[in-house]
């Protein structure tokens, strides 16, 4: 870990002003990913702004019935919050599928959005990595890429976003509320994370001076038809090889609405609205889900040790859809 200075912000404005004045500063909340990366010398901020004293730690319904999750509420408190458990069970399940109880007690909602990839090469500073050092090259491309992306990759980076929570947020069409020097803006979750393209060093579209203040969940609750399926190398406490978040509404066996988001396959939680559109109005059957999965995966590209992923992803999509729509 490098040497750095440390201050505590006591309000959003104060935090934003402070970070705007320091290009090498970072916010710290739970710290579960940032401190890990600092110990590996992957991230070396000169200044940390502790935002834990800012009051962004409540979960409340907005007047229009949407639910606002404070950025600093811990993952555990979010997953076990009665309003989340009751109205957004998919989100509870996704959060509880991630990390460990201890980490969920530390990690915050804002921090979860800011999680960085678990790519082995990103973490190992002795190997080239375009995300860590643009232009250095991608070691994963010809290396061990079991956990790497199959969709939306670029010649510069095949890393995946590791979050479970964000996959659920994508399926739920959440909105990220951020505040910067120039005021507040709302970023749809679809536009929050980025694909690597030729700027793999950028994980998301948050500006340096912006602070995530909350997550807004739409009114649609999907309490009847939902599934978060996580496939991993052990039963718990492991990152997803593939994960699928499905929410749906049904009428007499016909899908009236469906959203499917995937983790472990791309640089951002992945959704294919064409496939969702195709399923609407169709009966919930194994065949239809398989067809939709093929649509989602038609452009999948693999890199050697992740050759198994398209097949696994297809099966996971079909399984999650089946379970969400109760067709067994």
């Amino acid at each position: 870990m490098n040497n750095f200075t440390y201050t505590q912000a006591d309000g959003v404005d104060n935090a934003v002003q402070e970070i705007a004045g320091h290009s090498e500063a970072r916010f710290i909340a739970g710290g579960t990913n940032l401190i890990d990366l600092m110990k590996e010398h992957v991230m070396q901020p000169e200044h940390l702004i502790d935002i834990n004293s800012i009051h962004l730690n409540s979960i409340e319904f907005l007047e229009d019935g949407r639910l606002h999750l404070g950025a600093l509420v811990t993952n555990a408190d979010t997953a076990w919050h009665p309003a989340v458990e009751k109205h957004y069970p998919l989100l509870s399940d996704a959060i509880l599928a991630g990390a460990s109880p201890q980490l969920r007690n530390m990690a915050t909602n804002g921090g979860n959005l800011m999680q960085r990839t678990r790519c082995y090469y990103f973490y190992d500073t002795t190997t080239p990595c375009n995300k860590r050092e643009p232009g250095a090259g991608c070691s994963a491309m010809n290396g061990y890429n079991r956990i790497h992306a199959i969709l939306g990759t670029s010649p510069h980076c095949i890393a995946v976003h590791p979050s479970d929570m964000c996959v659920a947020l994508r399926a739920l069409d959440a909105t990220i509320q951020v505040k910067g020097l120039h005021g507040e803006r709302l970023i749809p979750i679809a536009d929050f994370h980025r694909l690597p393209g030729d700027t793999p060093q950028l994980d998301n579209n948050l500006a340096h001076d912006e602070l995530i203040t909350g997550i807004i969940l739409p009114r649609e609750h999907f309490t009847q038809h939902y599934k978060y399926l996580k496939v991993r190398d052990r039963a718990s406490y492991a990152f997803a090889l593939v994960s699928v978040a499905v929410v749906a509404t049904m009428e007499e066996g016909i899908i009236t609405n469906i959203r499917m988001a995937m983790g472990g396959v791309a640089h951002k939680p992945w959704r294919d609205e064409n496939a969702e559109q195709w399923l609407k109005g169709k009966p919930a059957t194994q065949e239809n889900f398989a067809y939709a999965a093929d649509m989602i995966l038609q452009d999948a590209k693999t890199f050697g040790t992740n050759d198994f992923k398209p097949a696994l992803a297809k099966r996971a999509i079909v399984r999650a859809c089946r379970e969400a729509t109760n067709i067994g």
Partner: peptide, 16 residues
């Protein structure tokens, strides 16, 4: 990883 002759999953998160 034979590119680097290095054990690449060298931590408890990836060495399961």
């Amino acid at each position: 990883d034979h590119q680097f002759g290095r054990f690449i999953n060298h931590n408890y998160a990836e060495y399961h």
